[in-house]
Design a protein around this nucleic acid. Structure first.
Length: 586
RNA sequence: GCGGCGGUCGUCUAGCCUGGUCUAGGACGCCGGCCUUCCAAGCCGGAGAUCCCGGGUUCAAAUCCCGGCCGCCGCACCA
C-alpha cells in the first residue's frame, strides 16, 4: 500500500498534534484516539459550526440539551437496543470462521429467530445439524456479542445494570415532555445534543473513522405528521441540489446517485418525511462548509435489512474519501413514533403532544346524571348517605350498574335507589384538541469522522510542502505572526501584534529560520493568515497580511489589522477589500 | 475473533537471513548559537532509541524460538 492519502493524513495528524492512539505507553488500545492541541481546536470549531447550522440558525424551534452517558438498562430495554444491539456469533470448530448464528438459522430453516436467546439458537443448530457453510465443519457454541458497554450504578447487583449510551437520542426522548413544556407545546420542536457515546465494536480497524468511543451530534426533531409545518423545506431547499442513491437504485445494482432538490425528493416520495428532507438539505450545506464540494457527497438510502430497528427510512450521508472510496459521516433516520411509543409503554409516562383541531371532533358519549332534588325528596334525612355512596363510584361504573340493572331500582351499599332518579342520555361533545405521539426525524453526525474528512479535503501538497487549506472558520489556528527576521526592532513590534491578536483568536508566533520557513510551517498547520512585520512596518506602523492559499499579501495599517483579519476569516478575499497588494517574491 | 505480514531515536530507515565488531549507524525533523530584508538557504554545536512487551535458547539476543500487545491486509463483524 505504501503511502495512501489516508496514511499521509494520519502521519501528518499525529506529527502535528491533531490526534494519536490512546494509551500508547501501555501499547495502545484499538478503537480509542486522543486528541492533541490542534485536534481539540479543530474539533471544537467543527462542533461550533454544526451548532451554528443546526441549532443557532434554527433557535426558534431547536434547543440543545445535555444528558448523561451512563444510562440505566431499562432505558435501552425500552429503546430496543438491549435486544437489537446484540449479535449472536458462532464459530466453526474446524476452520474457525465466524458467522452470525441468527442469520445462518434463518437462512437454513427459513424461520425468524427474533428474540431467541443463545441457548435456543444453539439447540436449533444442533437439532437441525446445521454445519459450517464454508467447510462443512461442526459449529461451536453460540456466543452473544452485546455492542453496548456495560457497567453498574453503585454496588454490583443485577438491578443496577447500566449501559454507556450508543447514541445520544434516548436522552432527548426521555426528556421530551420537559422540553415540549418549555417550548409551550409548540411543534415542530428539535432537541439537539452533542456528547460522547460508546459502542463496543468487535473489531474496529479504521483508525479514527471507527471508534469505540466518539462524539455524536444529533437532533431528534419532533413534528406533527398531520401538520408538519415544514415551509422551510420549500423556502430554502428548492434550489439546492443533493445527490441521492435510492434503495430502489441499489437493488437494481446501480451506483450513480441522482441529483435532485430535497423539496422535490420529498414531493416525489423518495424521502418519506419532509423534515428528514429538510435536515438532509442542511446537512449537505454543512458538509460543504467543511470543505467538501457538493459533487463529493451523496445520500445513500439503506435497504430494509440494513436499517436500525427503530427506523422506517434511513439515508446515510457519504463523503468520497481516498482510502475507502466513501465514508459515512451522518445518518438520517425517520424514527417516526417508535421511540416515544416504546417509552410511553415502558415508563407509563405521558409523552403525548397535543394538536389543535381546525374543526372540533364530535365525540358521542352516553352520560348518566341523577336528580338531586328528587333524591332529597325521596330520602329526606337519609339523602346524605345516598349522595355519599354515589360519589364513591365513578360515573362510568354507575352507568354500567344502572343500565344493566333489572327492575325499577338498583342497590348500592344496601340502599335501594329507584332508577327514576337517574337519567341516561347520549350527549355530543366537541373536542378541539387531540393527543398524539409526534413523529421524529433524526440527523446524526460523528464529530471525529468529520475531523478526518476536513483534514483529507484540506490536505494538499505543493512543491514538496504540505498545505492544509482549511476553510477559515474551522482552521485550528487563525493567525500567524512573523517578524521578517528575528531581530529587533521587528521582534518587539511582532510581540505587540501577537498580544493584540491573542485577545480575539488562536495565534501562533512564528520564529526561527527564514521567513520562507515560517510561511511553510504556517501553511502546514493550516493557518489562513500570517501577519508579517518588516522594516517598513516599524517606520510606517503597518503590517502585511498573507493569505495562505493564494500567497497574496496586502499592506494594512496596524489600526485596521483586526478589521481586515475579521473580514478574511469571514471568507472574504482580502486582496479586494481596499488595501494595496504587495509582492515580495517571484 | 481467525489467518498472513509487520513493529529499531519524533519520522523514515541501516543492521536481522549468516548471534559477538551495535556503548545500535544515517537522513529529515527538533533544541541552542552564528548568519538571514518575503516563501522549508548555509555553518557550528546538542539532545533524542524500554531495538513493542514478557518468557525461553545461548558464554553472548535488535538478530533465533514461544506467548502477548499494537498495526496493516484478507475473512467475519459493523443497530
Amino acid at each position: 500500500m505504501g503511502s495512501s492519502k489516508y496514511e499521509k493524513i494520519i502521519d501528518y495528524a499525529v506529527k502535528r498534534g491533531f490526534l494519536w492512539q490512546s494509551y500508547e505507553i501501555y501499547g495502545g488500545q484499538a478503537g480509542f484516539y486522543d486528541l492533541g492541541p490542534l485536534g481539540v481546536l479543530l474539533k471544537n470549531n467543527i462542533i461550533n459550526l454544526w451548532r451554528e447550522f443546526f441549532v443557532r440558525k434554527h433557535q426558534e424551534f431547536v434547543v440543545e440539551i445535555e444528558t448523561p452517558i451512563i444510562t440505566p438498562s431499562i432505558v435501552f430495554k425500552a429503546s430496543g437496543h438491549e435486544e437489537s444491539f446484540t449479535d449472536y456469533a458462532v464459530e466453526c470448530t474446524q476452520c474457525h470462521r465466524i458467522f452470525r448464528a441468527d442469520h445462518l438459522i434463518e437462512e437454513k430453516l427459513n424461520i425468524s429467530t427474533e428474540g431467541y436467546p443463545a441457548e435456543e439458537l444453539e439447540k436449533l443448530i444442533n437439532e437441525n445439524s446445521i454445519k459450517c457453510p464454508v467447510c462443512g465443519g461442526v459449529l461451536g457454541n453460540v456466543r452473544k456479542f452485546l455492542l453496548l458497554f456495560q457497567t453498574h450504578v453503585g454496588p454490583y447487583s443485577p438491578e443496577n445494570l447500566a449501559y454507556l449510551r450508543p447514541e445520544a437520542a434516548q436522552g432527548m426522548f426521555t426528556n421530551f415532555k420537559r422540553v415540549y413544556d418549555l417550548a409551550r407545546h409548540k411543534l415542530p420542536l428539535g432537541i439537539a445534543q452533542i456528547g460522547r457515546v460508546a459502542r463496543n465494536e468487535i473489531s474496529p480497524r479504521q483508525g479514527p473513522i471507527r471508534l469505540r468511543e466518539f462524539t455524536i451530534m444529533e437532533i431528534e426533531f419532533f413534528y406533527d405528521e398531520a401538520n408538519p409545518n415544514c415551509d422551510l423545506l420549500y423556502d430554502h431547499c428548492r434550489e439546492e441540489k443533493i445527490q441521492i442513491l435510492t434503495g430502489e437504485q441499489r437493488q437494481r445494482g446501480e451506483d450513480k446517485p441522482v441529483s435532485i432538490s430535497p423539496a422535490e425528493a420529498f414531493n416525489d416520495g423518495i424521502i418519506k418525511s419532509p423534515w428528514l428532507a429538510y435536515w438532509m438539505c442542511i446537512a449537505s450545506k454543512f458538509i460543504n462548509a467543511l470543505g467538501v464540494p457538493g459533487s463529493n457527497s451523496y445520500f445513500e438510502e439503506k435497504l430494509p435489512h440494513e436499517r436500525a430497528h427503530y427506523s422506517k427510512q434511513t439515508f446515510d450521508q457519504m463523503v468520497i474519501v481516498d482510502r475507502w472510496g466513501r465514508v459515512e459521516v451522518s445518518g438520517h433516520a425517520y424514527r417516526h413514533t417508535y421511540d416515544l411509543e416504546r417509552h410511553i409503554a415502558f415508563s407509563k409516562a405521558d409523552l403525548y403532544a397535543v394538536r389543535q383541531l381546525k374543526t372540533p371532533k364530535i365525540v358521542k358519549r352516553t352520560e348518566i346524571q341523577y336528580d338531586k332534588v328528587a333524591i332529597l325528596k325521596m330520602f329526606g334525612s337519609r339523602a346524605g348517605d345516598v349522595f355519599k355512596v354515589i360519589s364513591t363510584i365513578s360515573r362510568d361504573e354507575l352507568l354500567k350498574i344502572v343500565s344493566s340493572a333489572q327492575g325499577d331500582s338498583i342497590v348500592l351499599n344496601n340502599i335501594v335507589i329507584p332508577k327514576s332518579v337517574f337519567t341516561v342520555a347520549e350527549v355530543e361533545e366537541q373536542q378541539w384538541v387531540e393527543r398524539f405521539v409526534p413523529s421524529v426525524s433524526e440527523p446524526s453526525f460523528g464529530a471525529e469522522r468529520l475531523m478526518y474528512i476536513a483534514m483529507e479535503y484540506a490536505y494538499s501538497e505543493q512543491e514538496d510542502r504540505i498545505i492544509l487549506k482549511f476553510p477559515p472558520k474551522i482552521a485550528p489556528i487563525k493567525v500567524g505572526v512573523a517578524p521578517l527576521v528575528d531581530r529587533e526592532p521587528l521582534k518587539q513590534f511582532a510581540r505587540k501584534v501577537y498580544e493584540v491578536l491573542k485577545e480575539r483568536y488562536y495565534v501562533m508566533y512564528l520564529e526561527g529560520g527564514t521567513i520562507g520557513r515560517k510561511y511553510a510551517l504556517a501553511d502546514e498547520l493550516g493557518i489562513p493568515f500570517v501577519v508579517t512585520i518588516d522594516y517598513d512596518s516599524v517606520s510606517k506602523n503597518d503590517v502585511t497580511i498573507r493569505e495562505r492559499n493564494s500567497r497574496k499579501q496586502v499592506r494594512v495599517p496596524f489600526s485596521d489589522l483586526l478589521k481586515a483579519i475579521d473580514l478574511g476569516l469571514d471568507g472574504l478575499d482580502i486582496s479586494i477589500i481596499g488595501y494595496p497588494i504587495v509582492e515580495y517574491y517571484s
